[in-house]
Design a protein around this nucleic acid. Structure first.
Lengths: 339, 339
DNA sequence: CTGAAAGCGCTTACAG
DNA sequence: CTGAAAGCGCTTACAG
C-alpha cells in the first residue's frame, strides 16, 4: 500500500463498508461486536490512524486548545517568566488528561494576538496568559468577545465577564505579605511593581498590602513606591533608583519574585543586608525563589491548580455550560529573606 | 450571517466564483489585481478565516509541528527541567517565525510517545526532547523510522541516522570543565551523573572530562563516581552518599546544573564550603545557575540556537532536503563556584 | 446492525 | 484571467 491507509482500505480488507469502519473505530454501539473486532484488528495491522483534518472538518471541532502567552515587549528573546512556564506545564498536562491537544504560541502584546485560532478551526478555544498592560489588552478581549471566541484568561479581568477570568486572590496575597512584615516589626516598607490600573494583578497585591498597613496605623509613603515590570532587571533598576534617591526603608514588598530577585541584587550592591537591613518578600513562588540567597519569603500561587482550572473552565465554556468565577487562595511561604 | 463565513459567502458578496476567492486569498498570480482586492476586502469585512481543517485535508499537510517532551518517570508533576523549558521557548519562537503552529505534549518515557501525531495528520513532523534512558528510547525511534515519520531529536543519537540528531558537543563540554578545574589545581574530582550508555549525553560529558584528566596524568577513581538523573534531588542524594562513604574530593563535576544545585546543598549540609573545600562545576547554564549561592560555574549550551536548528532541520526533512549532522559548541561560563 | 450517499470547506487540475 | 467540477477522508442522517 502506498501512502497512509484510509478507512476505505480498512473496509476493503475487513470486508465491510466504510461507514461501518468509521462506526467500529469510534466504538459506536450500533456495530456488532464481531464486526468491530475484525475492523479494529485490520486497522491495527495497517497502522491506521483517523485523519484528524478530515474528522475535524466533518465534526466542526478540533479537540485542540491554544495557549497564547504574551510577553512584555521588553522581555528579551530567551527569558520567559518562570511563573508562566510553570503554568504552561500544568496546562499541558491538564489538556492531555482531557484528551485535547495544545497549541502553544508566544505573542507580543503589540501583535494581533487574539489571532484566528478559533476562526480558522485550529482550536476550539484559547487560554490567555501574560503579564503586561491591561489597558492595551482590553480592546483585544472585546474583539474576542465580539467574535464569540471561546476563551479564558489568567489574571486580568474581562469587563462584565468575571467568569472568563481566573486568578489568585491577589489582594489577599498582599494582605498576607503585609501581616507577615508587620508581625516582624518591618513597617517602613517600599513597594516595587506597578501599582496602577495598567497592572491589575500588581495593583490588587498592593491594595491588599496597603490596606493592612493602614488598619495597623502605618502608611506607605508614595516616595517608597517604584514602578517595575516583572523582570529581575526591572526590579534591580527600580530598587537602585529608590536607594539613590535616599529613600529609607527596612522592608520591601516586590510584586513578583523576579522583581524581588532583582531588588535583592540591588540591595546587596548598596551594601544593605537581606534580611537584617531590609526584609524582602516576593510573590509567585517560582522555583528559583528557594534557591537564591537568601531563600525568598514569598506568596505562593498554585500553578498546577491554576492550569487545571483554566482548562476545566474553558472546556465548560466550549460545551456551553455555565462557569463560575473562582479565585485561588494564595499562601505565605516563609524562607529566610525576612525576619 | 449565521456561523463562520465560508469562501462561498465571500464569492457571493464579491460577485465571483468560489475558486477565484480561494486563488485571490492565496495570492495566486493567476488572479486579476482588481479582483483580488475586492475579494480580500470582502473577506476582511466578513472576518473570514480559511478553515485549516479543510485546507489541510485538501493539501495533505498541516503546517504544524509537534514537540514531544518526555520526562523522567520520577520527575514530579510540577517540576520540568528548566533546560527543556528554555528549549521549548526557543522552539516555539522558531516555529512561529517559520509560519508553523506548535503542538506541545509531555510524555512519560514509558508511554507510546511516538504517538500518531503525523499519522493522523495533526503535525507534519515531530521534535523529540528529553533526558531519560537512551536504551528504552531506541526501540521507539526505530518505530518512528519504520513509519517514515519526520522527526528530529535533541541529544540522543538515532542508530545509523546522525542527521536526525542535534546536540551540543558534550565531550568538548566535559573537556572544558576538566581544563578549568585542572587550571585551578582541583584534581581530586568526583563526578555525579550517569556515566553509562543509558545516558549518552552524560556519558559523553564524562568521557571528555576524563580524557583531559588522563592526558594530564590524573585519574578519576571509580569510587568518586555516583549515579544521578537530572534533578536536584537526585544530585543531592548522590552527593550525600559520596560523603557518607567518606570519599575525598576537592572538586565535583555535575552532569547537569540541576544535579550541581542538589550537590551544593548536600555539600553545605556536610559543612563543606563551596568553592573553598569543593569546587563545583555544572552543565547547561540554566537561568537558576547564576542565582544560586555561590553562582554556578558551568558549561553553557545555547538553547536558542538549538531550538532554531531543530526546527530548521525538521523543516528540511519534511521538504525532502538533505540535512547535515551538526553539533553546537558549548562554552565555559565562569562564576563563583570554582576557584 | 449495515450500506449508500451527502457534505464538511477547501485547493487545484481542467477547460475555456 | 475565470468558472465548474472533482476530491481530500472522514461522520452521520437516512433507508433498509
Amino acid at each position: 500500500m502506498k501512502g497512509k491507509a484510509t478507512s476505505f482500505d480498512i473496509a476493503h480488507y475487513a470486508g465491510v463498508s466504510q461507514s461501518t469502519v468509521s462506526r467500529a473505530l469510534r466504538n459506536s454501539p450500533l456495530v456488532n461486536e464481531e464486526t468491530r473486532k475484525k475492523v479494529q484488528e485490520v486497522a491495527k495491522q495497517l497502522n491506521y490512524k483517523v485523519d484528524k483534518n478530515a474528522s475535524n472538518l466533518r465534526t466542526q471541532q478540533s479537540s485542540t486548545l491554544a495557549l497564547l502567552l504574551f510577553e512584555d515587549p521588553t522581555a528579551d528573546d530567551s527569558q520567559i517568566n518562570p511563573f508562566f512556564l510553570a503554568m504552561l506545564g500544568s496546562i499541558t498536562r491538564a489538556c492531555a488528561r482531557a484528551g485535547y491537544d495544545l497549541l502553544v504560541s508566544f505573542q507580543q502584546a503589540s501583535e494581533d494576538w487574539h489571532a484566528d485560532y478559533e476562526d480558522s478551526h485550529r482550536a476550539d478555544g484559547l487560554i490567555l496568559l501574560g503579564y503586561g498592560d491591561f489597558i492595551d489588552y482590553q480592546e483585544k478581549l472585546d474583539k474576542l468577545m465580539s467574535t464569540a471566541t471561546h476563551f479564558v484568561c489568567w489574571g486580568a479581568q474581562v469587563a462584565g465577564h468575571p467568569d472568563l477570568s481566573l486568578s489568585c486572590d491577589n489582594e489577599q496575597g498582599g494582605r498576607l505579605a503585609a501581616e507577615h512584615l508587620i508581625s516582624l516589626n518591618r513597617t517602613h516598607c517600599a513597594f516595587i511593581g506597578d501599582a496602577s490600573e495598567h497592572s491589575p494583578e500588581f495593583n490588587a497585591r498592593f491594595n491588599g498590602f496597603k490596606g493592612v498597613f493602614t488598619e495597623h496605623g502605618f502608611t506607605i509613603d508614595n516616595r517608597k513606591i517604584a514602578n517595575a515590570i516583572s523582570t529581575d532587571e526591572s526590579g534591580y533598576h527600580a530598587t537602585k533608583s529608590l536607594i539613590s534617591n535616599n529613600v529609607q526603608f527596612n522592608a520591601l514588598f516586590a510584586a513578583s519574585d523576579l522583581i524581588a530577585i532583582g531588588a535583592i541584587r540591588a540591595l546587596k550592591e548598596a551594601n544593605l543586608r537581606v534580611p537584617e537591613d531590609v526584609a524582602v518578600i516576593g510573590f509567585d513562588d517560582i522555583p528559583m525563589a528557594s534557591f537564591i540567597n537568601p531563600p525568598l519569603t514569598t506568596i505562593s500561587q498554585s500553578t498546577s491548580k491554576a492550569g487545571e482550572m483554566l482548562v476545566e473552565n474553558l472546556l465548560k465554556l466550549i460545551a456551553g455550560q455555565p462557569v463560575e468565577h473562582k479565585v485561588l487562595l494564595p499562601e505565605l511561604v516563609i524562607r529566610q529573606s525576612c525576619h
